[in-house]
């Protein structure tokens, strides 16, 4: 196996990893505010792609505007979902909320099936076709878009969490809801904001990946599982950890294909995930639950 091939495997891992990372960020956001895993996150990814395709092909909008419509309307759906389903559960019992998100994901994908039909739908590449050569290996321009968007999202989230009152309030919510409420934080609003951001981020991921893979009403669960695994691997609640988790997961799969077998790539990635969690239950970069806000 030559150096160029090894580099190509690395780039393939980087590409898949950056997709997982962008999806993982959404899991991390909701977890940080509510302490629950939002299993509807994959559906936000699906809606981002689907609604953008609808705006682009159905309404005939130019691609940047169609993408904006897709992301903004998905974010709105995220807020509606939170208000109608999550907020109604007054005690905030995590288990009940997780099951609500599972139900919500089924509702969202069924609705997409009926509104947009069962077939896969394409979206053009953001900046035309083409790829760049990296020492003989190739990388699609669209992948650079995905990596760039992930980087910007992480930078914005880091700023939000560490430099703004809103971010600090969201983190306080995650650590202790009751205590946060006592010091005057509107915890319910924080949850709504987290769903708004998570849905928007999920939609952004769906929008960025659709030109490469097409989208359909049923893409959510598969991508959701990968993003979830990436978020767990990195350590929940921390945007940088989510990105690290995504990249490590993508690389693991790529290495499995290169040196073992493509048949077992998911199984191998899963075994490594379990092994990591066995040694570090909080994930690669996760800190223990005690946290100062």
């Amino acid at each position: 196996m030559g150096a160029t091939e090894l580099l190509q495997f690395a780039l393939a891992g980087l590409k898949n990893g950056s997709i997982y990372a962008l999806v993982a960020l959404g899991f991390t956001l909701v977890y940080a505010a509510t302490g629950v895993i939002n299993f509807a996150q994959g559906e936000f990814y699906m809606l981002g792609g689907m609604l953008s395709v609808w705006a682009y092909a159905g309404l005939g909008l130019p691609l940047p505007l169609a993408g904006l419509v897709g992301v903004v309307s998905t974010a709105a759906i995220g807020v509606i979902f939170e208000l109608l389903a999550i907020r109604q559960r007054k005690d905030g019992d995590p288990l009940a909320l997780i099951i609500i998100t599972v139900g919500g994901s089924m509702v969202l994908s069924s609705m997409a099936r009926h509104l947009f039909g069962p077939n896969e739908r394409p979206l053009p590449l953001f900046s035309g076709g083409g790829s760049v050569s990296v020492f003989g290996a190739v990388l699609e321009v669209q992948t650079i878009w995905i990596i760039g968007m992930t980087a910007i999202a992480v930078a914005c989230l880091w700023y939000l969490y560490n430099r703004t009152g809103l971010g600090r309030a969201m983190r306080a919510c995650a650590v202790n809801r009751d205590a946060a409420r006592i010091v005057g934080i509107d915890t319910r609003l924080m949850v709504t904001v987290s769903f708004l951001l998570a849905a928007g981020l999920g939609a952004l991921a769906g929008l960025a990946v659709t030109p490469l893979t097409q989208t359909a009403f049923d893409v959510g669960p598969t991508v959701g599982i990968k993003g979830f695994a990436a978020a767990i691997l990195g350590g929940l609640g921390n945007p940088i950890a989510a990105v690290v988790g995504g990249l490590v997961l993508g690389m693991l799969e790529s290495v499995s294909i290169a040196f073992i077998s493509s048949t077992y790539k998911d199984a191998i990635a899963l075994v490594v995930l379990l092994a990591v969690l066995f040694v570090r239950p909080q994930g690669l970069l996760g800190r223990s639950r005690r946290e100062k806000v």
Partner: peptide, 20 residues
């Protein structure tokens, strides 16, 4: 002989192997 799972987003790694 390479495989992928339904829902996979990228098959570059498998095709790199085939290329070699």
């Amino acid at each position: 002989e390479e495989s992928f799972n339904p829902g996979d987003t990228d098959m570059t790694a498998q095709l790199t192997k085939i290329k070699g």
